[in-house]
Nucleic acid binder design. Structure first.
Lengths: 215, 215, 215, 215
DNA sequence: GATGAATGAGGGTTCATTCAT
DNA sequence: AATGAATGAACCCTCATTCAT
């Protein structure tokens, strides 16, 4: 639906130039700032252009439309997020340990990427139509991490006998919700201690997932 | 900043007439529909007016600005939500039972007031500025029920020895998050069984709050 | 396809006001001037608005889009043209006399309505797509007078024995072409004597239509 | 006003290279297609460039402006048209025969060069200003054949006694008009039989030009 | 109590054009 | 001989808002 570039490409090799790539990146970065600060609707092309020290038209040289720019913003943030996560995801642990890692890594991400989180939710919200269906090409679940990997951890824990019996979907949703709520809550409680919060969550979900009766 | 227009009420009478009140209510209702269906940014005054079968200017007779209308929408939905909650909140129970009631009532509200939930989040999102601080007069926490009452339940449970030791704030945030996430998740999983979800949550938080070791 | 008015009309009676009608007429008139002078593509809304001493937005209050304005321009000119013709069309004459009247009336119209003729052709041209098919709601043939009435005259003349045998369609096309060519030719020959031209045409087509051999 | 860029030709050589000439021709050809399909206003440089598999800027290497390109398009089509005509113009005939040839050749041209005809009229229309005066360097009369040669035939016929007495200018205009109208009419009547039309015209103008009374 | 008419600011987008490479 | 990158002007159109009635 969104074709990447309508002009140029006279010869077959439509590789992007260094400068082009740099500009695109810069524009995406400025768009991220604008969206984070003003919200998606007020992040006009004029605003983005101003921040980039560039004319509105220049944006159209690098992106076919505002929508393409925003899609790129979304994809870009998602990409960065995935990298961040990949780095701190360890394997070969117990499910419980893995769940702990998951929670800690995610909270850490939010702590250090508040701008990105704002952007993600802003875009996800505004690209949803009447019946709630998303018009975004990517999984709208924040940080690109849908519930699937989390649910996988939980299921493995259940199979291994580490975890008690519960709905893995509900548990996964709750874990993610407890993480994602940080963004909005930071507005209300600016001095929220995220390290403590992470510790609390780990403990909370250890109790929630494990067998209660122990000899 | 937002004056509730006392000066504009005509011919000296300081009270609003019946018609006036009715029209305001109708306009608010139409605005709710528009926002729920189209999102806040696309819910223009033209759109609201059309739905109300009224001219754009008429809105300005009843509200001083678009912003006031939206504030009223927000307050109105909050008011309704509070009523709903008040009706199904019982007292004189154990903390555990009260927590269960809280969860069930809240999920039920979301289940039966999806439109309102959409409106609330839509407004909350778009009325947040750069540093996340809300520009809304009311507590943005959905349904007007901030964390306070929930936290009160949890503390009572701890004092009564029903609940184990944990951060009541973190627990309260997680409970609310697990509830509030339903709205967004309904977009992704439209056939989500909310009764089951409520049951799962009750169980989940019973495990999370109570002592694990039992004789 | 083009709905007339999207806003207002809260109550059923969507009658236009006096002022509204007047403004619409004025705007149409200014549009006619602009198109005649600058051609359709350069007759921007800004240009029309300037001529009307009004803001661009005002045009949108009276017309839903530029396209609607132009359609109205087209229709308006056509209407005026039809009136003009109706006034000088006599009946109960011989076919030959009627043909003469037709030619004279048409040439007179062009002579006195050069602006309108320019507008008509300008719009007709630019609202034609690749395969030549018109996207206009009305018959694009100038002055709304398609070939039909002309052809009717010619057929009557043939049936009455006044005219010789010929293709009425070709003859009709030629008559109209000889008339319509005046517009373009006026550019090349500004001092073209239209009275003389009309007389010449009448003579030309008398020879072309009537039997050549006479006793 | 429009200099044919002698100064911009690089490295001193005053002649255009082969490649240069070829590209110009190609660009003109693509412009012709674009104008024929989309009309002059929508035949943007971007569009032409795309069709030529070239960048917009390349066009500016070969032409100083869009206007120059279009002038060249116009001239080119005219040139081709003149060649076509030159080939089928015979001499040493009676004026009547020559008129017949003229009509037949012109109709044949239109029949086989509809694209070109579209382009010619499209350009002629849009390059005309307020008072109708053309801003084109060449005679706007289609196919470069102004009325002059046609009028010459008619005058010769009158001098030779073949033709009756009539205004040669009016007659010439009518002949051309009847020919030129084919283009527009083809839009309305796509299955117009041009051979028949040519035959009809020949007959029509034989009657119109010759003495009516014969022994 | 409500409307009709108008507006200024700003939205995204396309255009022909330029300049350095 | 051609392109990549950028631009200013203009495009149509929508917005919330005002003022007289």
């Amino acid at each position: 639906m969104i074709t990447v570039r309508s002009e140029k490409i006279p010869n077959g090799k439509s590789e992007r130039t260094f400068v082009d790539i740099a500009r695109r990146a810069q524009l995406v970065e400025c768009a991220i700032d604008a969206i984070a600060e003003l919200g998606l609707p007020k992040a006009s092309l004029a605003e983005v252009a101003k921040r980039a020290g560039v004319t509105k038209t220049t944006i159209f040289y690098h992106f076919t439309s505002r929508e393409e720019l925003i899609h790129e913003v979304f994809a870009s943030v998602l990409r960065q997020g995935a990298e961040f996560m990949a780095e701190r995801t360890t394997s070969g642990q117990s499910a419980a340990a893995e769940l702990q890692t998951y929670i800690e890594a995610n909270v850490a991400y939010i702590d250090t990427h508040r701008k990105q989180v704002r952007v993600l939710t802003a875009i996800a919200m505004n690209f949803t139509d009447a019946d709630g269906r998303t018009r975004l090409p990517h999984d709208a679940s924040v940080y690109g991490t849908s519930l699937a990997p989390l649910q996988a951890i939980l299921e493995r824990g259940q199979r291994a006998g580490e975890f008690r019996d519960f709905s893995t979907r509900t548990m996964a949703m709750t874990v993610r919700a407890a993480i994602d709520v940080i963004g909005p809550q930071l507005s209300v409680i600016p001095d929220l201690d995220l390290d403590a919060y992470a510790r609390d969550l780990v403990s909370l979900f250890r109790h929630a997932t494990t067998q209660e009766a122990r000899p």
